[in-house]
Design a protein around this nucleic acid. Sequence first.
DNA 1: CGCGAGCTTGACGTTGTTCAACTAGAGTGG
DNA 2: CCACTCTAGTTGAACAACGTCAAGCTCGCG
Lengths: 228, 228
Amino acid sequence: MITQSCTECTFKSSCFQKLESSELAMTDKSRVQVHYKEGETIAKQGTFMTHILYVKEGLVKIYRENENNTNTIYNIFSTGSLVGLSSLFQDEVYPYSVAALSDSMICAIDRETVEHLIDENNRFAVSVIKSINEENDHLRKKMISLTMKQLPGRLADSLLHLAGEVYGSDKFRLNLSRKDLAEFSGMSTMSVVRTLQGFMKEKLIAENQGSLDILDKSGLKQRSGLKL
Amino acid sequence: MITQSCTECTFKSSCFQKLESSELAMTDKSRVQVHYKEGETIAKQGTFMTHILYVKEGLVKIYRENENNTNTIYNIFSTGSLVGLSSLFQDEVYPYSVAALSDSMICAIDRETVEHLIDENNRFAVSVIKSINEENDHLRKKMISLTMKQLPGRLADSLLHLAGEVYGSDKFRLNLSRKDLAEFSGMSTMSVVRTLQGFMKEKLIAENQGSLDILDKSGLKQRSGLKL
DNA sequence: CGCGAGCTTGACGTTGTTCAACTAGAGTGG
DNA sequence: CCACTCTAGTTGAACAACGTCAAGCTCGCG
């Protein structure tokens, strides 16, 4: 993919669509576009957050590296998402790491430029607020899932989230390992394996050649429901 | 407490301090101030979110009412907090309920007025973004606590949060019941009781006449740490 | 004095993690 | 092309953590 200017970019996030072309020229000057291979670390928790990351193409995980050598995946972002908005005006360093789950094209946009644009352009600011509020919403949903549901419910939530919000399809190439799924669902890797096997035996899902297929969505949703 | 205008109010949130007096006059016109007694519901999940709530004085809990007749407390807010910012431009109805944990004075400010001010005043918008990002941060912390820690760690986190962020003191009147603590820490009421007893036996905390005293803060912090 | 809500405690069963062993496939170097 | 290794996935069994049930307690309040 050829590096093109922001003004001509047809992959703009909903936030950046709110910018004037003169403003896009500003972001264009203060940005770099980089390709990452699957597995590569894009941003490391604890390093200076000098840039906002735009997922122009690909799939990334946002995760915390805990002291006890475990990870917790906060969220999975796909094409069109902006990473780091919730740290603006707040954190000097990244409060989490970002890594590529598939080959990804990332635009790193200067943080101060973005903050400056928020100061200047209200429609942009409102768009950023909307985007942050969606993250907020996701975290609240996750909190309910983690506290109120048992393993099958938590895993079903994760799969439905992937199908609905991330891949936008009930059949998708599963770029997450069992360990990733575990770190995203708040459970152990072994429990993910067992629970997935259960889902497959019940014909709720199927998996071949790394492709996951949701066969019975309503059945899966039922499994995701709270115990009454 | 006498109802006074926003312009004269000395209890302004950090967000509202960014407003010009002409703008404060706008909020003043579109606001009502109401006193709630301990236990009263201030806003009900599912009802139209026509107002942003400002905690002028008191203590409130923000919680989700689940289908299976249980609650999950997202957060506890005290004097000076704005409730509902993360629903602006996003939710038509409250995604959670709000209730008073102590007698509280609440200003209800017209939502459209606030959204309009965000559109117009950039410093205000930035201040709102900061505030939402703090919520976001809290939810991420909570997510780590819930997934990576066992009961003592989770409860210690909650107590430290109360002392540090909510009450601003290591000794405070505990306005939360054991059930509230359970709903805030993702555990059962009985486990809260047992774990608190444990903390008291170890002289980490003490409780008399509803007042909670953190005796050994570093000990409690140690309990809050992840298992290595 | 009696009632009810919140609190407390113990016994028990379920859920889910951990440990350990085993398998399959992918990549590597001789 | 074959051993060799390394990682991801899988499975079973033992164990620990935690929720649930049931019972009793305390205290404020009518």
